[in-house]
């Protein structure tokens, strides 16, 4: 057995979808090349961009930071980072500390924003309330609002998130299964909103399977927070992920074919299904909103805050 690329007998990975065998160096190179290819093909970066990395300290965001940093070294872009502390006991702090260390190591501007400071409540406290809507609903909405605000405050022109192939395929299938055609139009490598308050979002890892990102950080010896969010198992996403992974065992290319299929119909979907953008402003916080309140403020009022 030897590396399909260089012949090194120390193979660390077999790509199920292609049968390719890779040694450590060739594996690392293949991931970096593939991400750079996505960035170029999808035109994710422009020279002079200031990219805000949503940095949780987990494997996906640390990999995003690591690979985007190669563009920073070549002085193509500048990078800053934000870490959201949702207030999840015995889980989030380690990620926050790791994120801080990566930002220091690379010498990039970094800020940590907590739900408690911004909204006066932690996710744990929300989950103690009787009328809550499930952890992921709040986490997603509050985190998105905080990251958007941080991008404006830090002068970022793009927001990079660590969404990987598995995340993207789960989102495609979840939205399809729920009949959520509005959200289905918003996926993709680059999402731009008509509202200028929303910074363009990019997903450089969109074509990398989650497992390969895990192996990449171990192979590169990058410090990351490997742990499970205590609320993760309550999610519909978890159920969808399980089904897709079961299918992938017998059909190793299924995640890529789902992604490619979606990409083929995306433009048609957008033309037919995209909702007109809300031009209103939230009366409570001033953020873009389709109703009187933005989603974050609607949830806050519902929670009695």
């Amino acid at each position: 057995m030897q590396c399909s690329k260089c012949g090194n007998p120390k193979v660390i990975y077999k790509r199920e979808q292609s049968g390719q065998l890779l040694c450590q160096d060739c594996f690392i190179e293949s991931i970096e090349k593939k991400v750079i290819k996505t960035i170029k093909n999808e035109k994710l970066l422009d020279k002079g961009d200031k990219v805000l990395v949503a940095l949780s300290g987990g494997k996906d965001s640390v990999t995003t930071l690591e690979i985007l940093n190669s563009f920073r070294k070549m002085q193509v872009i500048d990078i800053c980072a934000v870490t959201v502390d949702e207030g999840i006991a015995n889980y989030r702090q380690e990620g926050v500390d790791i994120a801080k260390r990566h930002a220091e190591r690379l010498g990039i501007e970094h800020k940590v924003v907590s739900l408690k400071e911004d909204y006066g409540i932690t996710l744990d406290e929300i989950m103690e309330k009787e009328n809550h809507r499930g952890s992921c609903t709040y986490c997603g909405v509050f985190r998105r609002t905080i990251i958007n605000k941080a991008a404006r405050e830090m002068g970022a022109t793009k927001i990079a998130t660590g969404h990987n192939l598995d995340d993207e395929v789960q989102a495609i299938m979840m939205n399809y299964l729920e009949g959520n055609t509005g959200n289905l139009t918003k996926l993709g490598a680059k999402t731009e909103s008509k509202a200028e308050e929303f910074t363009v979002k990019i997903k450089p890892l969109r074509e990398i399977p989650e497992r390969e990102i895990g192996l990449y950080v171990v192979a590169k010896d990058l410090e990351v927070h490997f742990d499970s969010c205590p609320y993760a198992m309550q999610s519909f996403r978890g159920e969808v992920s399980e089904v897709i992974n079961q299918l992938a065992e017998k059909h190793p290319t299924i995640k890529y074919s789902t992604l490619r299929g979606y990409d083929k119909i995306k433009n048609t979907l957008k033309k037919e299904m995209q909702k007109e953008y809300a031009h209103g402003r939230c009366k409570r916080c001033g953020e873009p909103a389709s109703n009187e309140l933005c989603k974050a403020c609607f949830f806050l009022e519902e929670l009695g805050l």
Partner: peptide
Amino acid sequence: EDTVIEDGDEIQLVQIIYGG
């Protein structure tokens, strides 16, 4: 994973993916 474990080996397993 197809690697054969030999006498005296140290085998470390690193969980990289958690549910959800």
